[in-house]
Amino acid sequence: MSAPDEKVPAEQIDAMLPEILKIPYARHLGFTLLRDGTDIIGRMAYTDALIGNPQVRALHGGTLGALMELTAVCKLLTLARTTQVPKTVGISIEYLRSAGRVDTFARATVTRHGRRVANVRIIAYQDDPLRPVAAATAHFLLATTPAGAREPKPVSTGELSRSTP
């Protein structure tokens, strides 16, 4: 198996960029992916349709959550160990500042990439990466158990002690 943090080559990331646009919801959000070396940055292009509070003209919190979730999935796909499209299990979003009428960017860091579960931290920012508008932690299921094997077998203590990660 490849090393936990081994990245796919830059050319493979470039090949991924147009693939994202095949996801209808990514187009709805105005989501595109930018490559920065072997890292990626998610970008949500501003349109009036993203507004969630017309009184103060701020972006809808849900769109910021969606931007961060999409960026996290793409980030996992840039790691050689990710072989299937990860499924989102949960996301916890902190809203830090009101997001205004400009493009929003997101950067993700994989905190743990296990065999089954990956944990990712994401920040979303507008003009200044040091002043994020939102932050999130999300966890993803990386590999699904084959059908028919969903219920785990009861394991004996002997088996447990043998199992090493």
Partner: peptide
């Protein structure tokens, strides 16, 4: 709002916006 074109499943982001 589909997140997975193969299955037609809605993207979680749309659900996040609904919930918010």
């Amino acid at each position: 709002l589909i997140g997975d074109p193969e299955t037609g499943v809605l993207h979680g982001g749309a659900i996040t916006t609904l919930v918010d």
